[in-house]
Amino acid sequence: MPVQLEVKDLMKYFRIPVGFLHAVDGVSFQLEEGKTLGVVGESGCGKSTLGRAILGLNEATGGQVIFEGEDVTHLKGASRKAYKKKVQIIFQDPFSSLDARMNVQSLIEEPLKVLGTYRNKTDRLEKVDELMDTVGLAGRYKTSYPHELDGGRRQRIGIARALAMDPRLIVCDEPVSALDVSIQAQILNLLADLQEEKGLTYIFITHNLSVVKHISDRIMVMYCGCLAEMADTDSLFEQPLHPYTKGLLSAIPVPSLHVQRNEILLEGEIQSPINPRPGCRFAGRCCYATQLCRAETPKPAELLPGHIVSCHHAGEING
């Protein structure tokens, strides 16, 4: 499959009163068409900012986003509008991302109006029906308002809105974390079906490691704005190389009484991304940290084929 999206050394800093918050600090990856990249990390690690920077919702401070061969990092005007038809986002919270005063039909119609693909009202409403059918919303909900619907149905509206433009790539920003497990499974199945049907590419942002394992082809682990490790899903779960990934994987509560895990408890908490000093950002919590880790930021390196890790000592730790 051809590479659809290429992100090169992407940076997004936010100016705050005491300096800069380094939300995303030099992240690079490539994503093939029709595949899913899972982005995992804890709150504040920059995973949502990364997604938004790719969409152009937050303009990148540095680096490049190349989509289908075109540099889309700093688009303006008509070319920006054209790019937006190709990339869309599904937001985390279906309770706050929908206008409470619009009914389901107008909510789904809105993107069709805004980007001007369908000038004719009848065509637009036909497309709304088609979209509602695609995401499994019964026609009788057309006149309902968001507050009348449960979380799962609201998230289906969000998905229909994202699909309205027939996008090529969808950034899914924690699309199931506000939902109960039984409803979460319905939405995950829907996303998988849509991908198969339409050949969509997903960037799937989540903190839930079981979900990310289920849906992703490749996974990127982020820590404090930086890429810690990136590998194909099986490779990452079978052979995590970064000390943070190891701790993260061992912290997942497994719903079974027969799984024995050697628990690696990570002490301490995430370092602040405000004016970070050079050095590995995980060093404060890492049991292998040395002088080198505190002085120099590790560069991502391909330790095994396709398996990238940012750690000075990854080679030694993993023998």
């Binding site: 499974a185 995950l188 199945n189 079981s210 289920h214 849906i215 779960f237 497994v254 079974s256 799984v259």
Partner: peptide, 23 residues
């Protein structure tokens, strides 16, 4: 049983999850 089937497993590869239908 439905709850267990809805959870994506960390140890097994599943193509599809089995949600509990309805609300």
């Amino acid at each position: 049983k439905g709850l267990f089937a809805s959870i994506p497993s960390i140890d097994r590869k599943m193509r599809r999850l089995t949600p509990i239908e309805g609300l």
